[in-house]
Design a binder for these strands. Sequence first.
DNA 1: TGGCGTTTTAAACGTATGTTTGAATTGTCA
DNA 2: TGACAATTCAAACATACGTTTAAAACGCCA
Lengths: 261, 261
Amino acid sequence: MAQKDTVNCLLEAAEELFSERGFAETSLRNITTRAGVNLASVNYHFGSKKSLIQAVFARFLAPFSQELDRSLSEYEKTLKGKRAELTILLTIAADTAFRSSSDRPQRLNIFMRLLGLAYTQGQGHLRRFLRAEYGDVFDRFSLQLSQATPHLTNEERFWRFHFMLGATMFSLSGVDSLTAMATHDLGKRSDVTDVIGQLIPFLASGMQAPSSVASSVTSNDKTASVSDDLSQKSSNLTSDAASEKSVNGSVKASNRARLPI
Amino acid sequence: MAQKDTVNCLLEAAEELFSERGFAETSLRNITTRAGVNLASVNYHFGSKKSLIQAVFARFLAPFSQELDRSLSEYEKTLKGKRAELTILLTIAADTAFRSSSDRPQRLNIFMRLLGLAYTQGQGHLRRFLRAEYGDVFDRFSLQLSQATPHLTNEERFWRFHFMLGATMFSLSGVDSLTAMATHDLGKRSDVTDVIGQLIPFLASGMQAPSSVASSVTSNDKTASVSDDLSQKSSNLTSDAASEKSVNGSVKASNRARLPI
DNA sequence: TGGCGTTTTAAACGTATGTTTGAATTGTCA
DNA sequence: TGACAATTCAAACATACGTTTAAAACGCCA
């Protein structure tokens, strides 16, 4: 009882403070003070500040990745061989993210800000942690996305995917200050759902821009192979299945766009 | 001679280290060690760590904003009343940024990473500094961008502009690790110019996606008024022209999309 | 060359951080 | 209730930080 409360208050306070100031700028004393618990309880319950950071991410990503996996399965069932539709895929991801933080609506942009910090601030341990924990589900989404954009070369798709990621993370993570600006400049209040509503058409249109390569249809009908050599780069971290590297060692480039976590 | 060297080495080392680890994670001892100078020289030449951070930004932004201003003037001359073209505007900005860091090609993505940090990490002083120093030029670019996208409502344009900003900052700031990933997955080397070449069509297509509002042409032919109440939000910082606030105090919302710095 | 302002240097200062410790408190089950 | 494990607590630990200081080294012009 008391343990659950302390752990939860710590995660809550850490999530807010990290998103406001960043990881290094937030001290354990800041966190424990806001949580109303003793300073030492962080090291007692989590072991270290690093582990606390990872736990903050896990609290959001565990339900999200599970729900995304379920939603993708459901959608794939309705497809019956037809290829996925881009706008629907984006909407699925957005809906899943939004429902995963339904208890408090502003939780989504807090998490987006954290995700942005995971990229911009050092925190290499976080990137490795995220890929090891949730890489599979994201790869699955990535595969569907490939099939929904058959007109693109793998290189184009790779880059446009990261353009999408950047636009999403930046606008959603800064949604508080941006909506404040929008309210001030345009006289119209807007919230996260409004932004997502604006975002998806923008992203879809960007993705569907014509390929710069002349005949991109012929060279790219086989975008299926995705999750083959997944654990290659993170093999020094996951340590299992590392001995299988020589099996597909002859396959130089797997020609797939992978999520950058 | 020695002074110029010390200052320059400090800026060089700080630029690299800040972009690698972030501001708070980079200590003055890290910087002075890499620069090969004494620890105290930071406070001697710059006064404080904050001022050093601002100086790092100024070293890039001063030539950039000056060159962007010149390029915009030149382009406006060729327009002769016609409205600006979106792709050309984006190319102008990209070219200017690239030429401003022509001495070392990887300087652009280093700076993009710094710009991203300026948003994500606390550093409120930096945002105020940037807006006070370079707000005018960015507002000018913003005005041209408005005229190049007349089919959008002000709200749509506001959000799509920030979608562009996020996609650009994220992909260019992470261009090192992303190109490494692209090389590994796709077997093709690419650099900053390649990414920009992919980026501009994506952004242009996203911006030119149809407006979700039915008749957006009639309500939005007058997107000209931009730089009127510029200093309102930063008046507590710039402190000059603060008494003029009552002049246009009656104008509630100026209906313009402003750059978020 | 001698003197003086500028710059560099090593050392120290005060403060804040993450972590550890051992005693005090709490909750639980025999 | 009483004993035992889990949890909380105040205090201290070692370390790293930004900044300051005063002396040493340097550069330059009379």
